[in-house]
Simulated assay, not measured.
Amino acid sequence: MAEHGMPVGETAARLGLTVRALHHWDEIGLARPAARSSAGYRLYTDDDLDRLRRILVYRELGLDLDAIRAVLDEPGGDVADQLRVQRAQVAQRIAQLQVLDEDLERMIAAQEHGILLSEDEQRETFGPAWDTGWPAEARDAYGGSRQWQQYAERSASRSADDWAAVTRLVSDLDHELGAAVDAGVRPGDPAAEALVERHREVFSQYFPLTRQMQVHLGRMYADDPRFAAHYDGIRPGLAAWLRDAIEASARAHGIDPDTARWE
């Protein structure tokens, strides 16, 4: 060591620190160099380097600078107690990371599979008419869309009971739609408008459903044989009635169904 000490830059390089860190520790009195060069520059002695190495050990263990100062400088300080406190904090963090890991696992699975229920749970929750291949079909068709991501984010936190509650909402809506057809409610009537709003509210349980997107769903209900069979099975003509009611509502809100976009 030149002039009985090591300059700041060399000390920082030797220990893998920054000069700024050494200056900060000097300013707060945590690690002050004991020597000076003839030109007045700070020099770190062997004892200083030993203290710096000890600081690095405790910093690596997660102690903050005040705790490190207490360990190194307070007479009679119980280092074991300080380390026990740090270990308890580490254990808490590990538990938090474990929960985060489980959440990430569920989110990944939801993005890949849609519904995090076994096939038996799906049949029990959604009924015997449910096709367990539908989630994979939906993923293949819409997996890259924002709506699929939103759907998966919600699915990741839903249990079988949560899905059963959503299913009841849909079933109740189907009953209300069928009752409206029986009562002679026409698309555009106030009662039909209320049901269109109810439809948008219920189906927003899957992903946020705008009025323009709802127009596309309405047309799919009437045009897709599987959806048409579902609604017409509730009441003959219900698929077309729901499509017309959605389009009448869209027009009432200034949306041209023929130019509505999926957005």
Rank of each mutant, 00 (worst) to 15 (best):
R168Y: 05
H175Y: 13
V215L: 00
A180P: 09
A222G: 06
M220G: 08
V170P: 00
D223G: 10
M213E: 08
Y221C: 00
Y206L: 15
S157V: 15
R154I: 13
A165C: 10
P225C: 06
G184R: 11
V166G: 10
W163H: 14
S204G: 12
A152P: 08
D182K: 15
Y221R: 00
T210G: 15
G178R: 02
L195N: 01
A222S: 14
V185S: 03
G184F: 06
A160S: 07
G178P: 02
Q205L: 14
A183G: 09
D224R: 00
R211T: 10
H199A: 05
V215S: 01
E176A: 15
S157I: 12
W163F: 14
Y221W: 06
W163K: 12
V181Q: 05
G178M: 00
E201I: 02
S204M: 08
V170E: 15
H199D: 04
P190M: 02
Q212S: 14
H175R: 15
D161S: 14
E197Q: 06
S157G: 10
H216G: 12
V170Q: 07
V181I: 02
H216F: 06
A194V: 05
L195S: 01
A165E: 08
E153G: 08
S171T: 05
R226I: 01
D172W: 10
G188C: 06
V196F: 03
S159C: 13
A156K: 04
L217P: 05
L169W: 13
A183V: 09
T210F: 13
D162T: 09
L177R: 07
L173I: 03
Y206K: 13
L177T: 06
